[in-house]
Design a binder for these strands. Structure first.
Lengths: 208, 208
DNA sequence: ACGGTTCCGATGCAAGCGCATCGGAAAAAG
DNA sequence: CTTTTTCCGATGCGCTTGCATCGGAACCGT
């Protein structure tokens, strides 16, 4: 057997470089040459790991998505004793990427969301991540409001509340990045929304 | 006086072309040559109207923002007899750009939001638009919940509710574009949120 | 040690980009 | 009709991009 290389590891290493560059100059400013330089490899290596640039970006998106979802899960596991309500608060705060140290991830995420609007491949990867997060939210909401989910099926208003929460966190993230909101304003909005959730769990049902 | 040309009109014409292209291929796919072709003018004309490409994009963003805000205002004026509550519903629905015929605007908007995260010039233009919409929302919310705004100053929870509503609409728009939500799901989420707004107007205050 | 694989760094290439340039068309004023 | 000023279409330039190519270095089983 000839030379062997940890391909998956290198892929992640390259994905990190893509993130750094996308954070600084946006997704448009990501070129193969710059990525290679940032990842401390040659362009040839990058081309070997990813057949095309799109493949590289798609992998990077998946990588970031995994990281965020993983962090949310870790946050939940590290504080299992509390109520489902406060757990949901923590999870939502993580997803909103409000903390300064996650600003990079937030910018990368936003860049990919915009790109996904015109790239079906990216959109598919993105949808998978959103579905996972929404399911997680829905579980927590159903549990916190007493009606336990059965076989992974939540009452429809829990699904809807989860959709709302996910959209809200995404919107808040974007508004913070643009500078329309400060992180603490966004934090306030998010938690006010969550508080409101418990005070009227089941009323007001109409429309699809 | 020599030849005279409606510069502002041509600028708008070019901005429309930018929108069409951004809708199809994303903001990255917008080149001066393509814009010129789509706008039925020569590249020279485009260069005369906008000194640089960034200037062109910035103008286009302002143009789209104006159009959306204008449509929301028109929607409000066309149905002034109803309650502030239902007016807010209409306004929010417009902002969320859920209708299929506004999908183009939505994609353009999202593309600019992502770009603004790395371009202070675009971010400034965008902030102005968000501020206008948020103020509009806050007015309606304050009016609907009885506490009239005085001298354009709303109670803090109206401001916060407006921020939440704006972030929610933006998030929903993005999720619809990506295909994570259907338009009717987004519609349902939005109106459930609005309904919840009236049922508990002032409680749950903490954090900044 | 050595042959066979796998890897990769350097280089080349065609295409496309934003922008600068400029000669001449177009139009009001005399 | 001539002049003067504004406008713009065509063209060229320098640069960057993603990708293809390939000779040789690196490595492992034998």
């Amino acid at each position: 057997m000839p030379k062997q290389v940890d391909h998956e590891g290198r892929r992640r290493q390259i994905a990190e470089a893509v993130c750094l560059l996308a954070d600084e100059r946006g997704l448009e400013g990501v070129t193969l040459r710059d990525v290679a330089e940032r990842a401390q490899v040659s362009m040839g290596a990058v081309q070997r790991c990813f057949r095309t640039k799109d493949e590289m970006l798609n992998f990077t998106l998946g990588h970031v998505g995994e990281r965020v979802t993983e962090r949310v899960r870790a946050r939940l596991l590290s504080s299992p004793a509390q109520s489902a309500g406060s757990a949901l608060g923590y999870a939502a705060t993580e997803v909103a990427l409000l903390r300064a140290e996650h600003r990079t991830e937030a910018r990368v995420w936003l860049a990919f969301v915009a790109q996904a609007a015109v790239s079906e491949t990216l959109a598919a990867t993105l949808r998978a991540n959103y579905a996972a997060l929404q399911g997680l939210f829905a579980d927590l909401i159903a549990e916190a409001s007493g009606r336990r989910s059965v076989d992974g099926v939540q009452p429809p208003d829990a699904q809807r509340a989860a959709r709302a929460l996910l959209a809200l966190t995404d919107g808040l993230t974007a508004h913070v990045l643009i500078g329309h909101l400060t992180p603490s304003e966004a934090h306030g909005v998010l938690h006010a929304h969550l508080d409101a959730l418990w005070k009227q769990p089941g009323g007001a049902e109409d429309r699809a």
